[in-house]
Simulated scan of single mutants.
Amino acid sequence: MASTTINLAVVSSGKPIRNLPKQLRVASNAHTNELYRSVAAASRLSIHRLRITQGRDRIPVSDSADLTVKEFGLEEKDTIHVKDLGPQISWRTVYIAEYLGPALIPVLFLFPLRPYLYMYNEIVDTMPEPNKRQQLLCALLTIHFIKREYESMFVHRFSNATMPARNIVKNTSYYWLMVSSMAYQAFRPGPTSATPTPISKTAMLCIGVALFVFGELANMNAHFVLRDLRRPGSSERGIPCGLGFGMVTCPHYLFEIVSWVGIYLVGGIRNWSILVFIVVGSVQMALWSKKRERRYRLEFGGRYKPKRFVMIPGVV
């Protein structure tokens, strides 16, 4: 098919962009990622800082190597709006940073920093050694966040390459502070570290470890399933299937909760900081799951079997 060249009017959206041309010529059979490259070259900004929307209905123009300008619907003398999203940072970098602290904090709190964190009147002579429950909890927390680091570096594929750079402060602060709170409470020396429970400590620890192991392995399996549905460098997905995907939209979140319930049982039922982390995380993951279910229904249409529950069977 013969290619034609079309002229597009270019308008800044929000804060004015220096060097942004008022008009842009582009081939109708050029892919939309070439449109992004042209705007980036003209404005001297990174492609990742730009968001381009169609002028008529403000539909975002995807940065795609598969979709042409004509297929998207851009025509001669159409207007495109270009927005500078500000300094960006890669999603992978943010994930690695936010999990690095939690992977190190439990060990630091339980061993080298222990004498400095728990200097209070109950400690009269020497600092008691960490008990077996505390050492086990430290191991589970460390394993969990090392697993997350591994997935962030080698498993996850991100539909968007970057996010606003300021998000790294928000994301890392949440995880680092929450895990610090968990570790500080759970690793406290003295009588408060021994938490009485309705059933034997041994049974509670065994149940907790079993839930943790199952949750971690099932969660990782779900992440591999999701990864294999998306081609490298593409945002297009297939319909997921496998363990848990027949029950809920996002079984990886379900298994994440199962894993954290195991951590909670090992840490002791009076460890409110772990419980708060589970509740807050579950609410956020439920919102993400509902959003993903809506996206699946829209994206796959009749090929997708709608799920009644998006995260926890019978609950949400």
Rank of each mutant, 00 (worst) to 15 (best):
R166E: 09
V26A: 02
R292D: 00
D125A: 13
P102C: 06
A186H: 05
G73C: 07
S46L: 13
N171Q: 12
A161P: 07
Y118C: 09
Q54M: 04
T172H: 03
L100W: 06
I123G: 07
A30G: 05
A139H: 04
K201W: 12
S235D: 15
R231K: 11
W91S: 03
L217E: 02
G73R: 06
Y116N: 05
V124P: 00
H252C: 10
G242A: 12
T68V: 10
G262P: 04
G14H: 09
E98P: 08
V316D: 02
W260T: 06
R18E: 12
W288Q: 15
P102A: 03
E71A: 14
N221W: 15
S13P: 01
L275P: 04
L229A: 04
L298H: 12
P106W: 07
P196L: 12
P198R: 03
S282C: 01
R114H: 10
L243Q: 00
P60T: 08
K132T: 15
V315D: 00
R303W: 00
V248N: 08
K305R: 10
L211D: 07
G244M: 13
R303T: 02
R297M: 15
G262N: 10
A183P: 07
R294C: 07
K290F: 09
L20K: 06
N29W: 01
S289M: 03
